[in-house]
Computed example of a mutant assay.
Amino acid sequence: MCTYRGGVRLFVVEAGDWIELTGDDRPATRISAPDLAAARRISSGLKSDDGAASVILDVAVAVAADYRSARGSLSVAGPEAGAAAQVRYVGTVDGLAGLIADIEAAGVADGVTLIPVGPDQEPRVLGDDVLRRLALRSSARAS
């Protein structure tokens, strides 16, 4: 587990289990939405109902060293990869870390669940890599 100490929470789905990699023990509510605007509306409604739980957005991801390779891995996974009612990200790990930081900064959600849709993507390895990138972003802003 990475030593990222930012505010965003990060979960993965592994073998059907919802696992948090950021080590927070506060309650969490998992949501799915077709886009970030819809996610923000859902999140706002949940926070006004019960401000105690963190809202965690599902994000279907296909990552690789470059966009073209990530897009190719999504094609291999098939057309059903990443349901239509789910935010999707295709690109690099750095870009994914940027998206997650933006989701938190814009108040869309308190964290994300990474759901890899490409072949050969290990959820925990991907999550740890994202946390390292978030930590680097955080330390760069602090300096």
Rank of each mutant, 00 (worst) to 15 (best):
C2I: 03
C2W: 02
T3Q: 10
T3R: 11
Y4G: 01
R5F: 05
R5N: 09
R5K: 12
G7M: 03
G7S: 11
R9E: 14
V12W: 10
V12H: 09
E14F: 02
A15Q: 13
A15K: 12
A15R: 11
A15W: 01
G16K: 08
W18E: 09
E20A: 10
L21G: 11
T22V: 05
T22R: 08
G23S: 09
G23K: 12
G23A: 12
D24W: 03
R26Y: 00
R26G: 14
P27H: 04
A28V: 13
A28C: 11
R30F: 14
A33H: 06
P34F: 01
P34Y: 02
D35N: 15
D35F: 02
A37N: 05
A38E: 14
A38D: 10
A39I: 11
I42D: 04
S44M: 05
G45R: 11
L46P: 02
L46I: 15
L46Q: 09
L46V: 03
L46F: 11
D49T: 13
D49Q: 12
D49L: 15
G51S: 15
A52G: 07
A53H: 15
S54K: 13
S54N: 14
D58M: 10
D58S: 13
V59R: 08
V59P: 01
A60E: 09
V61P: 09
A62C: 12
A62S: 15
V63D: 06
A64G: 14
D66M: 00
D66H: 04
Y67P: 05
R68N: 01
A70I: 03
R71Y: 03
L74T: 00
L74F: 04
S75G: 07
S75N: 07
V76K: 00
V76Q: 02
V76N: 01
V76F: 06
A77R: 08
G78N: 02
P79S: 07
P79R: 03
A83Q: 07
A83E: 12
Q86V: 05
V87H: 01
G91R: 07
V93Y: 04
V93R: 12
L96Y: 09
A97R: 01
A97G: 02
A97V: 01
G98Q: 13
G98C: 04
I100T: 07
I100K: 03
A101G: 10
D102A: 15
D102F: 07
I103W: 11
E104V: 00
E104N: 07
E104A: 09
A106H: 11
A106E: 15
V108S: 06
V108H: 02
A109R: 06
A109F: 03
A109T: 12
A109W: 06
D110L: 14
V112C: 00
T113L: 15
L114H: 11
I115Q: 14
I115Y: 02
V117C: 05
V117N: 02
G118K: 05
P119F: 07
P119R: 14
P119T: 13
D120M: 04
D120A: 08
D120V: 13
Q121A: 10
Q121T: 15
E122R: 15
P123K: 06
R124M: 14
V125G: 05
V125I: 14
L126M: 08
G127K: 09
D128P: 01
D129Y: 06
R132V: 12
R132M: 09
L134E: 09
L136S: 08
L136V: 03
R137D: 10
S138F: 04
S139E: 13
S139R: 10
A140I: 12
A140R: 13
A142I: 10
S143N: 15
